[in-house]
Amino acid sequence: MDSTIKFTANGERRSVTTDSERALLDVLREDLGLTGAKYGCGERECGACSVLVDGRRAFSWRTPVSKVVGKTVVRVEGLGSGEKLHPVQEAFLAEGAFQCGYCTAGMIIAAVGMLAENPKPTDAQIVAGMDRNICRCCAYPDILRAVRRCAGRNRGAEVRP
């Protein structure tokens, strides 16, 4: 049954008339052309579809679009402003914290969500906070370094040759 769903995506008001049971991920990708968030598992296990809903990480493939009515959705494409990257994006780029990069959007969103709650996480807290995201290329050491960098640790240090 189609209904009109209104929500905010990065400051822009969006209105979509569609079946309210559809996944937020599908609506973002198919209706709004926002392909940053990815399908990875369909079971809340890998985090590739992560977006922020009212500042908290949500698995958009498992979030019916009806659940975000009136809420604010932030995707990886909307983190920075124009050409300026968000600090977490900067850190991932600086550390080369990706290989194929398919999980990267979800990783960055998870890191942004985690750092909003705890700006100075320990390594153990980073691991706990990021552990719901899978990187099959296993770029975990580089991602860990990128998140540490955001937390103001190892800034400038450990730069690889």
């Binding site: 990708r29 926002l34 392909t35 940053g36 968030a37 990815k38 399908y39 995707r75 990886v76 494409e77 920075g80 990257l85 994006q89 991932f92 780029l93 080369g96 990706f98 990069g101 398919y102 990267t104 959007a105 960055i108």
Partner: peptide, 17 residues
């Protein structure tokens, strides 16, 4: 990686995109 910036911005289009 030459298209690293696109990757962190969610701008790179993978086959499924």
């Amino acid at each position: 990686r030459p298209n690293g910036r696109d990757i962190v911005m969610g701008a790179h289009h993978y086959p499924s995109d």
